[in-house]
Design a protein around this nucleic acid. Sequence first.
DNA 1: TAGAAGTATGGGAACGTTCCCTTGAGATAG
DNA 2: CTATCTCAAGGGAACGTTCCCATACTTCTA
Lengths: 334, 334
Amino acid sequence: MSITILEIASLTGVSKSTVHRALSGSDRVSEDIRRLVLDCAERHQYRPNISARVLVGARTYLVAVLCSDFGNIHFAHFLRGVSKTARDSRYHLLTVNSLEELKNLTPLGMEGVISFYGDAAYHNEPQFEGLPTVKLIKEESPVCEGGDYISGRLSYGAGLMMRYLFEQGHRRIGHITLDQPGDRGINMKFTGYRNALRSIGLEYDPELVAHAEFYLEESGYEGAMKLLRQKNPPTAIFALADILAAGCYRAAQELGLRVPEDISICGYDDKEYSSFLRPPLTTISTPYNELGQRAMEMLVRRIDKLPPVTEEPILPELVIRNSVYNIAAANNGR
Amino acid sequence: MSITILEIASLTGVSKSTVHRALSGSDRVSEDIRRLVLDCAERHQYRPNISARVLVGARTYLVAVLCSDFGNIHFAHFLRGVSKTARDSRYHLLTVNSLEELKNLTPLGMEGVISFYGDAAYHNEPQFEGLPTVKLIKEESPVCEGGDYISGRLSYGAGLMMRYLFEQGHRRIGHITLDQPGDRGINMKFTGYRNALRSIGLEYDPELVAHAEFYLEESGYEGAMKLLRQKNPPTAIFALADILAAGCYRAAQELGLRVPEDISICGYDDKEYSSFLRPPLTTISTPYNELGQRAMEMLVRRIDKLPPVTEEPILPELVIRNSVYNIAAANNGR
DNA sequence: TAGAAGTATGGGAACGTTCCCTTGAGATAG
DNA sequence: CTATCTCAAGGGAACGTTCCCATACTTCTA
């Protein structure tokens, strides 16, 4: 274990109070003694005992990051962002798997919580365990008015893609959505699709929407099959997730349709594999790393009781590759 | 904050010692009082204050997981495994980004450390901060004799692939390795390649080895170009990583070679995208989830001062898809 | 029936830190 | 020269828990 404040005191021949003052920055200590103490602390690699600090209610610079699935690659990127800002602001991170575990760990003295895509059930609580809390959510909604939150802006992303498809001349745009109970984000994307249709001036046609059951390639395949076998099939399919888009590719291949010449396909997520699909998939990328950094910045301000600042929003980006055909140009060229 | 032992004491009218005894399991307390105390604790959702425990040197059930890159998908899976076992054995996890941060957080009272693919520089230290430590390493080596470690067994995985290629009739097998300073694991894979060559009875030919500079698709492309443009090119290329294999695909395509008919390509990692490559990539999968569980089990035993048990090793697995051509069968059929 | 043995409970100290109050010494002013 | 002020430094309490020892009471044994 590390050396304690009391040991430094006896080593330097001053009292623990004086050591504390010297260590905790410019209080009332003479310059000589400060030097002496700081020197001794440095030499013995003194590190304050966080646990003791907690007990007396002092600051800990500990922040909990809540995520129910550590295996999620998006979380991994998010965490990397959080971790970066945390390091810059001398905070320490504590990853927590569930609300139950968070409760068990609160005595460690965390000063705040960052929550990654929590269950919809928790959206209503503005903070966890009475601690300042920043939540990453899939899409803003009135429910979240109370607390601090940062949004993946799925609806915006969906609109981005829809507008792009429209610009490329597509008018019949299919959509594969995912019916996952309790996950508001996905319905939000569906909403994004519908809103975009409206703003573009296209009519909503339920025939153009397939409902996938699982987050699997197979579900995308089935959805695409349903959409493409109609008498008047769409010219483009916007799949809710890249993994579903991969399934669409397989369906297209099986039906003898070329991507993108015969059918345009695009996804959402920009997974690592998406650029390796043939043709490389046009998709939407969410900058989770930046979202993580921003979330931590927001939390730090909140902990410091600073008023929230309105910064430029962090928006999903359109990643244009080769899976969407420019119908407009093709028609012009004809 | 949660209710304290002292508050329960005054609530139930007994002393804090008695409350502590009742709470800490069957010590010397009368059944009546135990009931009374447990009831009160339950009702008020008592949670022991870990920080106070640390201070008096009692158990904390806290374990640190050390990883320098939280964005690593392999780590994400590993962490999921660790987390599962931790939950089952009522341990709590604390993810730590660097050795420096670990040092800062030791006062939280962690009882052990699990380290994910740390720098080679740390391999020599059997434990961090004097705590029981289990390390995930890429490959066993004499260096690690002192401490507890669990191995990804890269060398075994490389051997697995080489034997498979040999069985499929390949005799000129190229290899793309990665020159990363300080990363022993990669040299280990290279060693695995050479060992496998020897055990199979093939001669080592430096002409068949390309050294990639970065962990990038581009590097794989360059490596494959070098190997395939020789006058006597290999019939198969074993790339050090799936991402390099993806680059090999591009090189093959550019040279007008069909995969796998003209050139077999295989990788290592079994990344999510590997099954989406055309043709789907034959590769090696490391069960990081299981490795994480095992690592935590080992650590728990070590913390409990139990002797280590020798269990079945967790081995990488060959994932056969369609990127390796069976030359032997083709020749027979001819 | 006295003393020993055993059992239930209470009380104090300790862990390392921070906060608050006190002490003492030197400087300044009247 | 004394009273007041300033400033450096020391000392004690508190946080919540655990551990150890003390105390009171019961039960057993000779």
